[in-house]
Amino acid sequence: MYRIRLHGRGGQGIKTAGRMLGSAFFLSGWEVQDATVYGAERRGAPVYAYVRADHGPIHERGVIRDPDLVAVVDESLVGIPSAGVLQGLAGRGLLFILSTTPAALWQQRLNLPDRVLTLAPPAGAPPIGTLCVGAAARLTGVIDEAALVAAIRQELAGMPAAVVERNLDWARRAYAELAPHAGRVVEGGSGTAVGYAAPDWVDLPLEPAETAAPAIHAALTSLRVPTGLWRTLRPVIDYDRCNRCWWVCSEYCPDGAITVAADGTPRIDYEHCKGCLICVAQCPPHAISAIPETEATNP
């Protein structure tokens, strides 16, 4: 059975990508199971889809714990533990990342020798799930281009022709680029009921209601959630041009992520700024600009 996960963010076409890959297998004669997993459905929040494909009926369900392939649309997710990109990759399985960073560097960084492949998104292409679909199809070596194309057409039925063609172009390019690695992803087995790791079951103790009610006895704990990781573009204040009119940028920032110093100087809290860029759009002297997160250096 093939077990494949696709990781990205809300808005990057992950759900559709999962279905494209599922349909591509299905049209190639495989039994398939595909699904999308989202927590809170939010643009920018981590999301993943998974696809299982086998020669007979599939009885497994839910999260893929032991993937043969993990394909990542948004490379910034790799370093976010809660996104779960690396989950189950310790032993085997291939990691594919849309990234301009060379695969060798990722292999070293993640300690996954020979198990990371990358593809730089073609010029004009955003980080989008379709690229991963083309790549994944080729990496399995069991989906031909006609099935890939048919699957994409099927999943994008109803979309404007230009959108369909664009996606087909991206998928074909990724499919072609990965040709040297065709068949790198191999089917995994189904484990064993002998010598398995037993669950460490525990008897829950009865605890006082103050502890055991879903109540938070503290203020502002949300500050521990680094929503800055959602960001793909970073607003940067040019303090030489900043007028200190904090009541614009700080007031309009939905998240309250622009704090105001005593002298009126606004400061962006990059740990929490989600990158909506309202401040960039509203700054009267145009003192705030947006730069790609990958080019940013943390202060």
């Binding site: 829950l204 009865l206 879903p214 938070i216 006895h217 203020a219």
Partner: peptide, 27 residues
Amino acid sequence: QPLSQAVVVLGGSTYSYFRYESHLAAQ
């Protein structure tokens, strides 16, 4: 005293804990 009550949880493990604690309290 800051207090958020009846807060939403994400994930079956967290959910299971709170539900089962109510069961244990009832027992």
